[in-house]
Amino acid sequence: MAMVMLLVDIADFEEEDEEVLQLRITRKRLRDELNVFNLPDIQFKNLFRVSKDLVRDLVTELRPHLQRERPNGLSVKTLVLCIIRFHAVGSYQRAIGQDFALALSQTAVGRCIRSVSVVINDHMLRRWIKFPATPEQREAAKIKFANALQPFPGAIGAIDCTHVGIVAPKENEEAFVNHHGYHSMNVQMICDPELRILNVSARFPGSRHDAAIWMQSPVRNLM
């Protein structure tokens, strides 16, 4: 009897494994058949919130760091489109994976977000996000604010903090509960009048007050 039950379990496992394999094949076929770059520019921008040229530039920039050795692995284009779509809509990973433009499993979406985020942080962040440190850079920043649609003479950056919701961590969970009652990271950002990010600090839990984050900010020491 035990042997019969074991054989039934093995058969069920093999059937389930076959279903997963067929689902993977179907998803890959969908990705191969649909080239989102063939979409009209307006529809592409509605989906990803950025232009096709910007996505192509990102793919070229990140390709040396994301290229996989496995021939059947996800393409760099798919990895980049996945994380852009995720940040464009701020949705859940499963919903992004079921998007017609991507056709990915939730676990694949999670891996995409982690791997691409690490590469961007390691190889692009410091090149593009720079706070005006020299007198010349600060003077240029002042001119930008003075000539903005809503002028702010003398300013060189606009600063604020925002709570980014997260799943409750297993360690020090209470430190991440913000004054609104949910778990978050309290993220400080500084930008210019064109909404270009000049500085970001995303290492403090939701319970940390904005003023405390500013007190420990490298920008404050620089000022």
Rank of each mutant, 00 (worst) to 15 (best):
L6M: 05
V8Y: 13
V8A: 04
D9W: 07
I10S: 06
D12S: 05
F13A: 13
D17N: 12
D17A: 15
E19R: 12
L21K: 11
Q22A: 13
L23Q: 15
L23N: 08
R24Q: 13
T26S: 05
R27W: 13
K28N: 03
L30C: 15
R31Y: 03
F37N: 12
D41R: 06
I42V: 14
Q43F: 07
L47W: 06
L47H: 15
L47A: 10
L47F: 08
F48V: 06
V50T: 09
K52R: 13
K52F: 13
R56K: 10
R56N: 08
T60S: 08
T60L: 03
L62V: 08
L62W: 03
P64C: 04
H65D: 08
H65E: 10
R70A: 14
N72V: 15
N72H: 15
G73H: 04
L74C: 05
V76W: 01
V76L: 10
K77W: 05
T78M: 10
T78V: 13
T78P: 00
V80I: 09
I83D: 00
I83L: 06
I84P: 01
H87T: 12
G90N: 08
G90D: 11
Y92M: 08
Y92S: 04
Q93T: 09
R94M: 14
R94W: 05
A95S: 09
I96S: 11
I96R: 04
G97D: 08
G97T: 05
Q98A: 03
F100G: 05
S105Q: 15
S105A: 09
Q106T: 05
V109N: 06
G110T: 14
G110R: 11
I113C: 09
R114W: 04
S115C: 12
V116I: 09
S117M: 07
V118G: 00
D122G: 01
D122M: 05
M124Y: 01
M124A: 07
L125C: 15
W128R: 11
K130S: 03
K130M: 01
P132L: 09
P135Q: 02
Q137R: 13
R138Y: 02
I143G: 03
K144N: 10
K144C: 07
F145E: 00
N147G: 01
A148E: 00
A148P: 00
P151I: 07
G154R: 12
A155Q: 05
I156S: 06
G157W: 10
G157C: 02
A158Y: 01
I159P: 00
D160V: 09
H163T: 14
V164G: 05
P169Q: 12
E171H: 11
N172L: 06
N172H: 14
A175T: 14
F176W: 07
V177S: 01
V177W: 01
H179A: 02
H180I: 04
G181V: 10
G181K: 02
Y182M: 10
H183M: 03
M185E: 01
M185T: 05
Q188K: 04
Q188I: 11
I190R: 02
D192Q: 13
E194W: 05
E194T: 14
L195C: 13
N199R: 04
N199V: 02
A202F: 08
R203Y: 09
D210S: 11
D210C: 11
A211K: 09
A212P: 01
I213Y: 03
W214R: 00
S217D: 12
S217W: 12
P218E: 03
L222W: 03
